[in-house]
Design a protein around this nucleic acid. Sequence first.
DNA 1: AAGCGAACCTGGCTGC
DNA 2: TGCAGCCAGGTTCGCT
Length: 292
Amino acid sequence: MPELPEVETVRLGLAPVMEGAVIDEATLRRPDLRWPFPQRFAKRLTGRRIVALGRRAKYLLADLDDGEILVMHLGMSGSFRIEADGGQKIAGRYYHPRSTLGAHDHVVFDLSSGVRVIFNDPRRFGMMDLVSRREMEDSRHFKGMGIEPLGNELSGETIAALFKGRSAPLKAMLLDQKRIAGIGNIYACEAMWRAKLRPTLPAGQLATGRTTPARAQRLADAIRDVLNDAIAAGGSSLRDHRQATGELGMFQHSFAVYDREGEPCPRPHCKGVIRRMVQSGRSTFYCPVCQR
DNA sequence: AAGCGAACCTGGCTGC
DNA sequence: TGCAGCCAGGTTCGCT
């Protein structure tokens, strides 16, 4: 379940039980996810205290007390769930007692607090890796990664600079993690709708104009707003996916265009009907009337 | 270099 | 009911 808002929601759910906890035991129930686990993975995690749980784009980062970072990606279908020894209330929240592990429960972290964190990923496009903190920026996952859309770098000027001279469609540019990192198919569609921009627009055209190009500014605002709104709603729960706490995200009810082909455009006074097209192999949902 | 499409997997839904 | 076909929130690889 993973674009930036869903990963941030997962982080917020896991942080109260993981931060400060020691990993008593890490269990790998298969040798790989998308890629093999790193050498001696379970052993290197055992006994480590999790200092902090952070996020970069769609990656979760567990800062360990030996200077390594546990890097985790949810892929398309990854999720975490939390169980507590005998059922427990922690920081005001109740967690279900331990249950039997299921078919796609690939990684289990047993924490010193009695909490168990389970990573489940049917399609196995997720990944876990260990990188040293000092080499993280240069590691293969993060080298060349684009700006953080909720950070200070995102602005109309930045977008204009990032897209300048590019002929690829706007939609493709938004999905390019080497420019802006963390936006996926849903929020690309939603941001373009909010900014009233056509998905096929050659991205470089956002960079034209003497002062700050108005369209680039609208897009920057739309990206920031839609991501913040989604985080506030606990992310989007498609196909019944859950947050780490077991709750459902709610932002799918606020989609303007995503998966709404044939429905009326929700913009006031717009008479458009949402359409679906395919761009670089993925569905794009948009309003042909108000997105230009 | 940039921009596509395919590949990696499994499961759920649709339509015949 | 059964089965084929299509689709899915991501990333990487390989080909023009």
